[in-house]
Every structure is written in structure tokens, then in C-alpha cells.
Design a protein around this nucleic acid. Structure first.
Lengths: 164, 164
DNA sequence: CTTCACATGTAAGCCGTTACATGATTCG
DNA sequence: CGAATCATGTAACGGCTTACATGTGAAG
């Protein structure tokens, strides 16, 4: 119980966690090693599958995680996105790249919204699932709301630009 | 005209561009050098101030920038934020760290919203300013809308959590 | 028994940071 | 002329990526 192999950690960064944080296996394996060295997790090899290494959190690791969770977040992240960066360099209101960028961004956002909706349906089928993973539920719903908001805003801008 | 020194580029990444992209002077100076090597910009030293190096975009540089602007953005950025990451690890709906994280996040978002409002007032005093920097105006307004949306959403969650 | 998927690992490089260092200008 | 500020630059390092490399298990 509570044991996990590197491959599964990697998978989580493509699904669960992957919606808001990315990491590849090439980063994960060395990190696991460091965490073993630091005593945050311990490793055990199974007898029936020599290639797999089972990792498990230690008391020290739990403490470290808990301390980290108790620390307040003091800064907002910077929103580095190419969409904003490109728009920044376009001065002219009638530059036709503006509607192009917007419509492309809308394509991406709608795909994202659809994806997030699927995630919600898949992960949170009933109230029990929500109550037992409430933090995860919150950030997923927040992502959905944010994406909807952006779509709505961009569509309004799009409409205004067409009216000329 | 069109000439700028490294110090001023650095300053832009603290103000104008800094709202959605960060870079320190230690990154900028080497980059300027590379861009000179690549022929994207050219450098000239002024007679009256030996320490200043004036950079200016070349035709090649303009072409490169233009090509880049014409490329479609094909992926949304990942929203790496500590707020989401921490919430992800909190399973229990009644964990008191949830309202703590939310209220702290609201503090940060309101500060941000206020800052963005000031930027808007300062940079876009009249319609001419808007029309001559329309892309910049759009992303600023988008940031404001996004921040407002997040505040609203979090406040609703906060209210719902209090009702128990 | 060989092929393919699984599981782990390493290497090189990019982009960004903080900290450190240096020279030029300005101003009291 | 000494101190503060301006302007530039370097060093060390951290986190992340892509590409490369290796070994093991399962399945035809």
C-alpha cells in the first residue's frame, strides 16, 4: 500500500498532475534518487519483477510534504504565453494577425475546455469521489471556469473586431 | 530613433513585458550579444557615454520577428502554479488548509487586479494610446478579466465552504 | 528465441535564476 | 574626489527538455 514505481509517477505527470505541472521521466528518475538520498522516500525491489523499484514515502517525507503544504503561497505565477507575447508586438489595431491569433487561441481553448470536461466526468463520477479528492476537484473546476472565461472574453473581442 | 540600450530592455521586462514574461539583465546581455552575432540587431556606441551600447533592429531582425509573428500558436501554456499543486495534495474536503490557501490566493489576486488597473490607467489614458498599442491593450484587458474571473470564482467557493 | 513493450537510466543542452564583479558617470 | 548610481558583464547552478542507451519481462 502506498507503493509506486517510477513509471507510474511519470504517468501521473501526464494525466492527474499533468494538467498543471509537467515532468518527463528523465527528470523524475534522478529526482526519485535524490529523494531517497534525502530520506523522503524509501525504495524496495520486488522479487517477481527485478526491473521495478517500488517507492514509498517515509515519515520524514510526510513531514516535509506537510510543512510545505502549510507554507503560504506568497506569489502569483507569471503567465508566460506566446499568445500574449505575440500580441504585445502588434501595435496596429487593424493588423489582420490579431483576429488570426484570437481565432487560433479560441480553437486551442475550446479543445482544452472539452478535455477538462472529459477529465471531470472521468475522475469525479459521484460525490464520494469529489469529497475524497477535494483539492484536485477544486483545481479542475477552477481550470474549467478559467478556460470558459477566456473563451467568452475572446469571443467578445472577436465580435467587436468584426463590427468594423 | 529605434535605438535602445540593454538597461532599457531590462527595464521593459520589469514593466511592459514583465506582466507576462520575465527576464533578468544577466539573461538579456548575453542574448543581445547572440542577436548581434545572428545579425538580428546591430550595436553602436555613443561618443558621449562610453558605457552605453545602443542596439537597433536590422532588416534581418525585422524579418525574423515578422516570420515569428505570422506563425500560429499551436499549444496552450501549462499553468504551473503552487496554489494548484498544493491543493492537489489535499484530499480531505474539511482540511482547514483549503480555506487558508484560498484566502491567501485572494489576497494575491486582488493585489494583482489593483496593479493591473493602475497599469491600464497609466498606459492607456486615451483612445489614441489604445489604437497605437492595441495588442498590448488587449492582453492587459485580458489579464484583468482573467484575474477578476478567478477572484469571483474563489469567492464563491469560499462562501460555499463557510456554509458548513 | 526473438521481438516488442516495459522500466529505468544517462548526456547534452537550453533557458532561466541568484550572486558576484567591474567600469563609467554623476553629483554633493 | 568620494559615494552612489548606472550599465554591463560573468559564474555557478537549477530545472527542464530531447535524444540516446540499457536492461528486463512477456508473448508470439
Amino acid at each position: 500500500m502506498g507503493k509506486i514505481i517510477g513509471r507510474e509517477v511519470t504517468a501521473e505527470f501526464s494525466t492527474e498532475i499533468g494538467d498543471f505541472w509537467k515532468a518527463s521521466h528523465s527528470q523524475i528518475y534522478p529526482e526519485l534518487r535524490r529523494m531517497v538520498n534525502d530520506g523522503w522516500i524509501k525504495v524496495s525491489t520486488s522479487s517477481d519483477n527485478a526491473k521495478e523499484k517500488y517507492y514509498e514515502i517515509t515519515a520524514t517525507g510526510k513531514k516535509t510534504l506537510d510543512d510545505w503544504l502549510n507554507q503560504l503561497v506568497t506569489e502569483l505565477p507569471v503567465h508566460e504565453d506566446l499568445f500574449s507575447l505575440k500580441l504585445f508586438f502588434i501595435k496596429d489595431m487593424n493588423d489582420k494577425r490579431i483576429p488570426e491569433l484570437i481565432s487560433q487561441q479560441l480553437v486551442l481553448l475550446k479543445k482544452e475546455l472539452n478535455y477538462l470536461g472529459c477529465r471531470r466526468q472521468k475522475l469525479f463520477t459521484n460525490d464520494t469521489m469529489i469529497q475524497n479528492n477535494y483539492g484536485h476537484y477544486l483545481i479542475l473546476m477552477r481550470a474549467i471556469s478559467r478556460t470558459q472565461g477566456q473563451i467568452q472574453w475572446l469571443e467578445e473581442v472577436q465580435k467587436q473586431l468584426e463590427e468594423k
